[in-house]
């Protein structure tokens, strides 16, 4: 009989190694939250939470650190991007999954995925060179508004393009996972292709499509560089229209960390901003998971 002890030992070793890795990953997320809490403590300790979250006053030199402008900026830019991206992406995904002949699918799917590989600073440059002037010279005048072009809208457009690959790719995969026989059941009753898509394919894949939206939103919430380059980063007022400047949280942190000089509590305030951003993303993801679970049960 052969000696199995070495093989069995390896088996146990691998299992423990993988377990250790998983533990490290889980500890990491807790560690990040803890570190941010500790570093932002000077602000959290001294400032009422309400003033930190719901004040628009941001005057580091006088010790006023209200984050509302940045929180609103983050949500405005993300919501704008989702509004712009979701309808065309959903329709593209429907086309690619349900209508396109194979050669179009094989040609366009990798091209769309390629969008995901473009560095975000390139998107930022494209935004500055193309979208910002477009908003300034064409779109804002259309609505009778004066705009520098650096705006919620410009950021939303750039972000929308950045989340296209996430939305389209996942949506196509999700819809293609719907069994062919289910489509045929609908078609065989005399339904048109569009009726089949609307009543059967979309309904069957709604939880997956929702998940695609969640991933895209998370990505948009945290996107820093491209947004920072085109949003305008205006500190002193909330954006009222899409043509106003915005200053999302990631841009605030990236722009100012390292230049805090000796202003008291400035670093802690930026850490608090980071903590708020992280919590927004975490809460968003946990809520989405809960909704997905309810989908799965239904």
């Amino acid at each position: 009989m052969e000696d199995n002890s070495a093989r069995l030992f390896n088996d146990r070793l691998i299992r423990r190694l993988i377990l250790a890795l998983i533990v490290v990953v889980n500890v990491l997320i807790v560690g990040i939250v803890l570190a941010l809490c500790v570093r932002s403590w000077p602000i959290l300790d001294g400032t009422p939470l309400g003033r930190l979250l719901f004040s628009t006053e941001w005057h580091p030199s006088t010790g006023k650190f209200g984050l509302l402008t940045f929180i609103v900026g983050t949500f405005a830019v993300t919501a704008g991007a989702m509004l712009l991206a979701v309808p065309p992406c959903l329709l593209s995904a429907i086309y690619l999954s349900e209508y396109a002949p194979r050669w179009i699918r094989t040609l366009s799917a990798p091209l769309i995925d390629l969008l995901a590989g473009i560095p975000s600073v390139i998107y930022g440059l494209w935004g500055v060179l193309v979208i910002v002037p477009l908003v300034q010279d064409r779109i804002a005048p259309l609505f009778g508004v004066k705009s520098t072009g650096y705006s919620v809208l410009a950021a939303a457009v750039v972000l929308a393009v950045m989340i296209v690959p996430v939305l389209v790719h996942i949506s196509v995969e999700v819809m293609k996972a719907v069994p062919r026989e289910l489509r045929e059941a609908s078609l065989s009753l005399g339904a048109t292709r569009w009726e089949t898509v609307k009543h059967v394919v979309l309904r069957k894949s709604r939880s997956g499509l929702f998940a695609a939206g969640v991933l895209a939103t998370s990505r948009a919430l945290g996107e820093t560089m491209a947004v920072l380059m085109v949003a305008g980063n205006y500190v002193f007022a909330l954006p009222r229209t899409p043509f106003d400047q915005a200053y999302p949280l990631p841009a605030l942190i990236a722009n100012n960390y390292g230049e805090m000089l000796s202003m008291p509590h400035y670093e802690a305030a930026l850490m608090a901003a980071a903590l708020v951003l992280l919590l927004i993303v975490l809460i968003f993801n946990v809520t989405s998971q809960a909704i997905l679970l309810r989908f799965a049960r239904a």
């Binding site: 069994p179 059941a185 609908s186 009543h199 309904r203």
Partner: peptide, 9 residues
Amino acid sequence: SQRPYPLPM
């Protein structure tokens, strides 16, 4: 069909 495929409703 070979297996029943009830519509998702």
